[in-house]
Simulated scan of single mutants.
Amino acid sequence: MGLHLRRTPGADGTVAVYVHGLGGSSTNWTDLSALLAPFASGISVDLPGFGFSEPPAEFDFGLNSHAALLARFLEGLGKGPVHLLGNSMGGAIALLVAARRPDLVRTLTLISPAMPDRRVDHRRLSDPRMALAYLPFLGKRVRRALAALGPEERAKQVIKLCFADPDSFPAQRLAELAEEHSARAEFAWAAPAMARSTFGIFRAWFSRGPASLWAAAAEVTAPTLVVWGEKDRVISVRRASRTATLIPRARLLVLPRTGHVAQMERPNTVARAVLGMWERVEADAW
């Protein structure tokens, strides 16, 4: 189905699949997948329209479509149920897969999943002008201004939004992120994919009843670890308790001094927590 993958060789027979968030890519899992490699081989996906995955024709970028495609991918691996980890939008997608295809998911790790959070707060944007980017008339000019930003400046904006302590972001990773932003700027499908996936998240947030993400959470049967950064500016930590409470077999870990991408900002801590869950599940003690 044309998904770009990053593989982390590791323990035979156990597979972990990593799903990034809005505007992210498979590189968001580099450090965590390496730490967990002695216990599971890793597959980090670029979702359609992100990283280096060109979206299929007619793909609508809704969370349900992302989840259906991811489920088909997991099924095609032929590895049995996997350890599934998702961050932000990828967390919401992973939750939907776990709810609808429990046969594909051994354990579920949700890192600041994009649960409904309808706050109006410009601080949730990497650039406040993004709030204007899709308005009639004004939007086109704003989009041109945003497109004129250099790749390193864009990368720094993302880090400032997603990290509680942006200064802790390694210089090497900044260079890699800037290079990725530069490469993606050449893809005609990149900006529309970002916009349409954003709207797809908003549509999901306003869905009610059985179609809501909260309803899906209650349907998850896999052992689940919910991780949230206390300083998350994108999806409020106030969503953490409800998320973990609704999922029948979930436990919650809130990390102080941590933002929206705990797997990047606190990879060692997250790795210990994930491994602890895996070990307890194997011992039937979760």
Rank of each mutant, 00 (worst) to 15 (best):
E54V: 07
Q157Y: 05
F187N: 10
N87S: 13
A193S: 15
R173G: 01
A183M: 12
G229S: 06
L95G: 07
L74R: 05
A190N: 14
N268P: 03
F50A: 00
S44H: 05
T8E: 04
D31K: 12
G80A: 10
A204Q: 08
S65V: 02
R101L: 09
V105N: 02
A164R: 10
M264R: 11
R143A: 15
G209M: 08
A222Q: 05
S41N: 13
D165E: 15
G51C: 03
E75Q: 13
S41T: 15
H83R: 14
A99Q: 04
N87R: 04
A171G: 08
G23P: 05
K156V: 13
P48I: 01
A273F: 00
S212P: 07
F187P: 00
S126G: 12
K156M: 14
S53Y: 00
V234T: 14
P151H: 07
A178M: 06
P9Q: 11
K140S: 14
A211T: 11
L138C: 07
K231R: 14
L47F: 06
V227N: 04
P223F: 05
E265P: 02
W278Q: 09
P81L: 11
M1K: 00
L149C: 06
L275R: 15
E176Y: 01
W214I: 08
D127A: 12
R257P: 01
L125R: 01
A216V: 07
T14R: 15
G259R: 00
T198P: 00
G76W: 00
T224W: 08
R196I: 01
G42K: 03
V105G: 02
L63T: 06
A240K: 00
F206R: 12
V274G: 02
R118I: 08
R101F: 12
S53G: 02
G209I: 10
A147D: 15
L95M: 15
G13N: 11
R203N: 11
L84Y: 04
L125N: 01
A188Y: 08
D12W: 12
W189K: 06
A211S: 12
A164K: 09
D165S: 14
V17F: 01
S212F: 06
V261A: 08
A273L: 00
R144L: 13
